[in-house]
Structures are given as structure tokens and as C-alpha cells.
Nucleic acid binder design. Structure first.
Lengths: 233, 233
DNA sequence: GTCTATAAACTGATAGAC
DNA sequence: GTCTATCAGTTTATAGAC
């Protein structure tokens, strides 16, 4: 299952020459993403996915060996991308505060770009943790987490972040905050609470950067200017 | 469905005189709570619930008319309790900052006390939003949200909170933060990231109070002492 | 109040025609 | 690559014996 990854996919796409880049297989993945994110993996049936792309359920099994293989293909790239992004930003030659701002922005952008995949990773985390086939997923998230912690430690060493903050609670809280914030941003207008709100992604990003920085900045630095995020190549 | 509420329940319990207060019906609710919170409502089968309490699936329908009625009974009390608690704290005669600290603490305590119910309310929110039978649930959450906002507005008027914070984003972020924080606290040890962490509820509470207050306090107040929460009757 | 037994629909997945 | 047809098992829910 895990061997049939993005490489095979890229090859197929290149060959197909589809203008929209969306062959049936991609449509299946898109429909499954939507269903898994909205109703959960366990509560989604292969028939619902098939119906969404106007195909009979049996035909899905020409493209994928199992329902789990569909799930795997949806979440793998997103998780590895998140890990690579975090590691890359942590390795930049810049101040810790600027790297943190950059990481918040880039994470939030990625979360909104591929929200369904990240929502699934978050919602089904207990399933992934129990499944040996998805161990790579948990490892990728651990690597991303470690990159965040490294930046935090740097900032404390530089004296820009409070030395007394709890690394673990701070980072895991921020990561969950961004994941759920992105989910709300994309999907939850229409709840009674969300009645009058609509924000741009940039506004949301500014909010989270401010919220986080005010919490973790060293004493006395509270009202210094917030650094601009780094521009990635 | 919605008519068979806590009143009927209390009556039954009083009559039963069960020492542990746990008749079969309560055991069914407890098993369903665990399953719904862990695997989701849609992914849980009535047979699994029945197996957990060593009863055949058909027997569940003596106690509940449908699977949804089980869900309803699990989430109703928790949601109404949360609303009442928020309204009560918001109405206290005290400073806004102290009320906010109290609300964070009491919410976190309630979240851990009845975590499964709150986890279900959060995870199945899209389902609840679509269902007319659960409209009361969304209304209760809106009322709780409004109570938080009222405290925030008070604090801004008193000059203890920053006047430029976004009421909506701030409160919805804090509420999600506490919900997910409680969920992690109770269940997520064992994830790769969670390896070495174990905290007391009080420590967790202090962390969130600090994290939140540093973010929303008016300029210059960052390092003032954090007020003790009010003691509720 | 729990059981047996079952209905009627749905589940993930397969075989083979086209 | 999609279809038809189907398997074996499971789903929510019901009827009626005990």
C-alpha cells in the first residue's frame, strides 16, 4: 500500500496529458477527501464516494486496492509536506522570532490549501496511531513538532522568548490552534456563533501571530513590532 | 426524542435505588459515550455498544428508540451545563480578568469531568448543525460563547484587556483551545509527541490561564500577578 | 427487561463480461 | 476502465416468546 505513492501518481499524470489534470482517479481522491473530512473515514462508504464521481462502487477497486489505500494517498503527501516545510524553516539563517512568524504563516497557508487532508489527519489521529500502516504519518508529525520546539528553544536562548514557558504545552497548543483555526476558517461559517464573521487569510494569520507572540515573548518585549515573515523560495 | 430528558432520567434513578446509581441504561450511555468519543457516532454500531454492556443489540431498543436518542441523552446535559456555568460566571460581581480566569478553570474542569460528551459535541458539530433535532445544542453553545464575549467586553471597558483584540477570533480560539487541550490531557498520552508529558489538571489550568492572559492583557500589564479564580458555591 | 429471530437495507470487496 | 452481478458479512431496527 505505502509503496504506491506520489511518484507513481506523478508518472500517471504526466502520461495522461489531461488538461485539467483531473482524471477519474483524482476525482475519486477529491470526493473521498471531502467525505472523510466531513463525515469521518469510518462513517464514509465506498458507495458514497463512487456515487460522487458517478461510478459504481466496484469500479473504485480498479484504482485502489482497499478503502484504506484511498485514505493513505490523501494524507501522505500532506503530512510529508508539513514535515519538510517545518524542517526547512527551522534551518533558515534568521532570528527565532522571525522563523516562528514564518512557520505560523506557512503552516496556516498550507492548512488552508490542503485543508481536507489535514483535517482528516487530525480527526482520525486515534485510528492512525493504532495502525502500523500509518506509522510514517505519526513520525512525520513528530518531526514537525520537533522543528517547532527547536525554534522555541532558539528564541529562549536568544532572550526573545520567555524562558519559563512549557515547550511541550506551548507547541502542541499552537499546532492544534492552527489546525482547528484553519478548519473553522474554511468550513464553519454558518454556525450560530460564526454568523457575522468573514476574515481574509492574511487577517487570520495576523491574529494568530499576535496571539502567539504576546504569549511567549520575554518580559518587556510585549509591544515590540512583529517581524515580517521570511519569504521562501 | 428531545422530550425524554434529564427529568425523566432523574425520576427513574430515584426510583431504582441502585447503590452505584448505575442501572443498565446508564451502562449503555457510558459505553456509547466511550465509543462515540473515540470512533465517532457514524462509525459506532449499536452492536458494539450492546456488546460492551453484555446485552444483545435488540435489547438496546427497549431503553432507547433510536441510535440518535442515545447520542442526544449523552450530549444534552453537558451542553446545557456549559451554558449555565458560563452565564453564571459572567454574571458574578467581580473584575473581568478574575471572571475570565474563573471561566477558564471551571470550563477546563468540566471538560475533563465530562470529556466524552464535550468531545462528541466538538467532533460531531457538523452533524449537529445539519440536524433540526439538535438545534438546541448549537443554541446552548452560542449562549456560552456570548457569555465569554461579554466578559471580554467588560475587561476592555475596564482597561485590563487590549482594546484592539478581535472578540470573535479570540473567544472562539480560546474555546477550541480548551476543548482540544482537555481532550489531549485525558487521552493522548502515547502519541509520539506526547512521550514524556504528564501534567496535573491544575498545571494545565495555569498554563492556559497564562497563555490566554498574556495574549489579551492591555499593554504594560503583561507581568502583573494573575488573579486567583473565584470560588463558586 | 432480555432474549431469539428476523427483516430490509447496506457494508467492503470480488469475478468476469464488455 | 467501467460495467453487471454478486458474495458474505454487517447495519439499524422490529416482533414476539419468555
Amino acid at each position: 500500500m505505502a509503496e504506491r505513492g506520489s511518484k507513481a501518481r506523478a508518472g500517471r499524470n504526466a502520461r495522461s496529458g489531461n488538461v485539467a489534470g483531473a482524471d477519474r482517479r483524482d476525482l475519486i481522491l477529491a470526493a473521498a477527501s471531502r467525505r472523510f473530512a466531513e463525515f469521518g473515514f469510518g462513517a464514509t462508504t465506498v458507495r458514497q464516494i463512487a456515487d460522487d464521481v458517478h461510478v459504481l462502487s466496484g469500479s473504485l477497486y480498479h484504482h485502489f486496492a482497499t478503502k484504506e489505500e484511498i485514505l493513505d494517498e490523501i494524507v501522505r503527501e500532506a503530512a510529508l509536506e508539513q514535515r519538510d516545510r517545518s524542517l526547512r524553516i527551522a534551518a533558515l539563517a534568521a532570528g527565532a522570532e522571525q522563523k516562528l512568524v514564518t512557520l505560523v504563516q506557512e503552516d496556516l497557508r498550507a492548512l488552508t490549501r490542503r485543508l481536507e487532508a489535514y483535517t482528516i489527519i487530525f480527526n482520525e489521529r486515534k485510528f492512525f496511531r493504532r495502525s502500523a500502516d500509518f506509522a510514517y504519518l505519526m513520525q512525520a508529525r513528530k518531526a514537525a513538532y520537533d522543528a517547532w520546539v527547536a525554534i522555541l528553544e532558539e528564541g529562549i536562548a536568544e532572550g526573545v522568548f520567555r524562558p519559563d514557558i512549557d515547550r511541550y504545552l506551548t507547541i502542541s497548543t499552537i499546532m492544534r490552534m492552527l489546525t482547528n483555526g484553519a478548519d473553522w476558517f474554511m468550513h464553519e461559517d454558518g454556525s450560530p456563533i460564526d454568523a457575522m464573521a468573514h476574515y481574509s487569510l492574511d487577517a487570520l494569520c495576523d491574529f494568530y501571530v499576535g496571539f502567539v507572540l504576546r504569549s511567549i515573548r520575554a518580559a518587556g518585549r510585549g509591544d515590540e513590532a512583529i517581524p515580517r515573515p521570511l519569504v521562501l523560495d
